[in-house]
Design a binder for these strands. Structure first.
Length: 877
RNA sequence: GGAGGCAUAGCUCAGUUGGUUAGAGCACUUGCUUCACAUGCAAGGGGUCACAGGUUCGAGUCCUGUUGUCUCCACCA
């Protein structure tokens, strides 16, 4: 059984090998055992041609921790992997490569040829992100890998589209939408990001027809005046009341436009007069509808002025702005220009300023869909973790507008609407329609494709085979947890919830586990343009996937951003290294016959029972924190136990027993060492899968792989409160001795005699070897009353230890220290006395708390007494 | 304009439903070639828990307000 571990921890030597073994053994697939409870997760599909970044690394690490721990806890786990076609993002990349390499645009190629290129691109890069996920150690069931544009997902998309259309929940209409002139497509509200930008506020006067008077309007976008079809004032505004109904002459254009009254206008903002451009402003669009104003669209899809812009036609929007301002000034229409800072909408993909404009688009009617999606969160059926994000969600869902789902792209799910140019018939159908059912003329399919998020919204059920009634759906849907960042609650989470409610009649998941962003060491967002991103693959290459995962999981608290730095990775690697070496130590002390498992309880030493007891407490803490999604807290507990309790204390405590490896005591010690180590590795495995497996395989173990071993559970039979307490007393005393020796500058090599006076003499006598090995003792004498005045006393709550005074002891320093400690103890005593003297406390606090305080008081009083004695002794010298 | 987060050691952060003397990592100081590990061991210094009130026997923890800071939503042209 016994194996060797290489002397140095070199994750590169085993991570890939282990991952391959797991795959070959089929450990990532759900259990065939139908009696096991189900735990399922669908991966937030990364962009098919994307590259793994820290955000992914965090997201996948958290999911893998959940999935691996559930798997070990006896669940049949299913983690569905896959990728997203990412309409705009992918199309932009391919267009860019076309432009750079061949000097072509997509229009040069035409739709079909261009799409072939995108598929080539997808086939070339689609596996890259998947292999990067594997590097991380993710335990997805790769046999179920999906793609949002594969056959099944496409079928689900059509099914959903047609269902919604037939219910009147999808409609086509001429509305004002957000347009990205660079991507040349419509965007949904969620895809527009607002940023504060410096601009100008131009005050322009519009002549009132038939008079020599003017009305002054203020605008930040003078070029849109070409499309003005009215000027609005507030109905109650005394200044302009008489002018409502009169006609203005639009400067430069010389078109006649009415003055209308509308409550949308803020009297106190600007001049109180608003130019109304229904084709290029969402609010103006609404005003236009109310007053039945014409809509004049003066901009083309590429943001140049259209033919309706008269002499300005063909100019870019910013060129036109310049020209128009100049012309207004020339014509004497410009009153003044103010500096002005305002929010400008930009495209979330390319950051180009979006242009609101009117256009024929497809929309999802949100109101009826939002209601059940709200209900399911409000009644707690879908829980957000942390809870506060449900508020974000509810607020958004309650104010949601209709969703613009058509995109003027080529890469995506083409909308299944078919038009007959001959008779004007339109058919929406799950299957392609080639001839018009009315007139038999050929039909053409809608050019537009669907918003990428339309297909991602179906991901939890489309990946499980919906609309077919599949076994996966029955067993694993609704899914258990969805893990994602707070930045895509609106894009994705919200849409999954209402889509699932509408199409499956069920919620898509029980819990949404939200995490924050990974920031750089200075707290800045990692971004390509800043160049401050840390590449997870480079980290894996240098430190190993386990170190990366540890660094991401430790100190990560739900919903909060985290900082990532090389110091953190180094700390993680150091921990891995520590485990590695501790394991080497344990292995070194084993022989071929060392079995897995504990010796009989009667054969356990005090320190064995102590570590077993401590381990039970760890198990409980880890389990409850995993349940609460406090993954970082659970990991910290494992870290502290492994390093402080196991390595720094337990291993050291066993060393004296291990000198004679053939002894029964040594054999038992080694078994406990091996057992605690293996069980700790199990707790750690979800976080650091590779190193734990590698060590597990080298040690005596219970299962074929740690991945499928049983997660430790709290076992009261392995709690030994008495031994635990005794061991803590000894440890406390050893620490106190070490502290004193350090204070007195006693060299570690200098051994001293120890006299120990204690009520717990049995426990201390049993620990004699520990004082010799760990507290620098040459000899330990147990006595009831120590008389020698020439010694320094060390007082702990359970013992007083005397070290004969040697010449290296600084008397004054020692007195000072004792006095300080006495003062501290007296402070504590008076604090507790005050507390106990407080009738309210004694009467109202729980009895256990009051008793605890009383016990503490007694302990402190005893300590105080001993300290007094010590001080007196020193003063007599 | 609305909502929310954060504020604890020099730095980064923990701190469960209020209950010992507020913790960790990194950094710092001191001492250690102790035969698993210097990617280490031992010991130490360092905090008015942003500020002001309140609730309570008891507040880092709950409530109110203030200040600072970050984020999201809305979009007054």
């Amino acid at each position: 059984m016994k194996k060797e571990l290489p002397k140095t921890y070199a994750p590169k030597e085993f991570e890939d090998r282990i991952y391959q073994t797991w795959c070959e053994k089929g450990y990532f697939m759900p259990s065939a055992d139908k009696s096991k409870p189900a735990f399922s997760v669908v991966i937030p599909p990364p962009n098919v041609t994307g590259q793994l970044h820290m955000g992914h690394a965090l997201d996948e690490t958290l999911q893998d921790i959940l999935v691996r721990s559930k798997r070990m806890q006896g669940y049949s786990t299913l983690w569905v992997p896959g990728t997203d076609h990412a309409g705009i993002a992918t199309q932009i990349k391919v267009e860019e490569s076309l432009r750079v390499n061949e000097g072509l645009t997509r229009y040069d190629l035409g739709r079909e040829a261009f799409l072939e290129r995108v598929w080539d691109w997808k086939n070339k890069f689609g596996s890259r992100i998947i292999s990067q996920l594997k590097k991380l150690g993710t335990s997805c069931d790769w046999s179920r890998e999906r793609f949002t544009m594969d056959e099944g997902c496409s079928k689900a998309v059509r099914e959903v589209f047609v269902n919604l259309y037939n219910k009147g929940l999808i409609y086509r209409g001429y509305r004002i939408i957000n347009w990205c002139p660079n991507c040349r497509t419509a965007l949904s509200d969620a895809e527009v990001e607002y940023s504060e930008q410096a601009g100008h506020f131009w005050h322009v006067r519009y002549p009132i027809k038939g008079t020599d008077q003017f009305l002054t309007i203020a605008t930040t976008r003078p070029e849109t005046m070409l499309g003005d079809t009215a000027v609005a004032v507030h109905p109650d505004d005394e200044r302009y009341k008489d002018l409502v109904g009169k006609t203005l002459i639009l400067p430069l254009v010389n078109r006649e436009i009415p003055i209308v009254a509308d409550e949308y206008v803020e009297k106190d903002f600007g001049t109180g007069c608003v130019k109304i451009t229904p084709a290029h402003d969402p609010n103006d669009f609404e005003v236009g509808k109310r007053h039945d104003l014409p809509i004049i669209r003066i901009m083309n899809d590429d943001a140049t002025i259209s033919k309706d812009g008269g002499v300005y036609a063909g100019l870019d929007r910013y060129e036109a702005r310049k020209q128009i301002v100049a012309d207004l000034e020339k014509g004497g229409f410009l009153v003044k220009v103010e500096e002005y800072s305002h929010n400008v909408g930009t495209c979330y993909r390319c950051k180009t300023t979006v242009e609101p404009l009117t256009s024929d688009q497809w929309f999802v009617k949100m109101e009826p869909l939002a209601a059940p999606a709200l209900e399911v969160v409000k009644n707690g059926s879908v829980k957000f973790e942390p809870e506060r994000f449900s508020k974000t969600y509810i607020n958004w869902m309650e104010n949601v507008h209709d969703w613009c789902i058509s995109r003027q792209l080529w890469w995506g799910h083409r909308i299944p609407a078919f038009y007959c140019d001959a008779c004007g018939e339109m058919v929406v159908s799950k299957t392609d329609v080639h001839t018009c059912p009315k007139c038999n003329a050929p039909m053409r399919q809608e050019e537009d494709v669907l918003d990428t998020w339309f297909s991602s919204a179906l991901w939890p059920f489309s990946t499980m085979g919906w609309p077919e009634d599949t076994e996966d759906l029955r067993r694993y849907y609704p899914t258990s947890v969805l893990v994602t960042g707070y930045d895509i609650i609106f894009f994705w989470v919200a849409r999954m919830i209402f889509s699932a409610m509408e199409h499956t009649g069920e919620k898509p998941f029980d819990t949404v586990f939200i995490h924050g962003l990974v920031r750089d060491a200075q707290g800045r967002k990692m971004s390509k343009s800043l160049g401050n991103g840390i590449d997870p693959l480079e980290v894996i290459d240098e430190y190993g996937a386990d170190a990366l995962r540890f660094a991401l999981a430790s100190g990560n608290s739900p919903g909060n951003d985290m900082r990532f730095s090389t110091e953190k990775i180094e700390a993680a690697r150091n921990f891995a290294n520590k485990l590695w070496n501790a394991s080497r130590f344990v292995l070194m002390n084993m022989d071929e016959e060392t079995p897995y498992g504990l010796p009989a309880v009667e054969e356990l030493a005090t320190e064995d029972k102590w570590i077993l007891s401590r381990f039970q407490k760890l198990t409980k803490e880890v389990g409850s924190n995993l349940d609460k999604f406090e993954l970082g807290v659970a990991l910290n507990a494992i870290y502290d136990f492994s390093w402080d309790v196991f390595c720094d204390w337990y291993i050291e405590l066993t060393k004296s027993r291990l000198y004679d490896k053939t002894s029964k005591s040594a054999k038992n010690a080694v078994r406990v060492l091996g057992y605690i180590l293996v069980e700790t590795l199990k707790l750690l495995h979800p976080y650091m899968p590779f190193i734990t497996e590698e060590i597990y395989q080298a040690l005596p173990h219970d299962e074929e792989s740690i991945m499928i071993s049983r997660f430790p559970v709290y076992d009261e039979a392995l709690l030994f409160p008495e031994e635990e307490e005794n061991m803590e007393r000894v440890i406390e005393t050893i620490r106190a001795i070490r502290t004193r020796r350090a204070e007195m500058n006693v060299l570690p090599s200098r051994k001293t005699k120890l006299f120990i006076v204690t009520k717990h003499s049995e426990a201390f006598r049993a620990a004699e070897g520990f004082f010799i090995k760990l507290a620098g003792a040459s000899e330990v004498v147990f006595t009831d009353a120590f008389k020698d005045e020439g010694a320094v006393g060390i007082v702990t709550s359970s013992a007083t230890v005397y070290i004969p005074l040697a010449d290296m002891i600084d008397l004054d320093k020692e007195k000072e220290r004792l006095a300080k400690e006495l003062e501290k103890t007296e402070g504590e005593i008076s604090r507790i006395e005050k507390k106990l003297g407080n009738e309210g406390f004694v009467a109202k606090a729980p009895a256990a708390v009051v008793d605890g305080e009383r016990a503490k008081l007694a302990k402190y009083r005893e300590t105080e007494k001993k300290l007094h004695e010590e001080l007196k002794k020193l003063e007599n010298l």
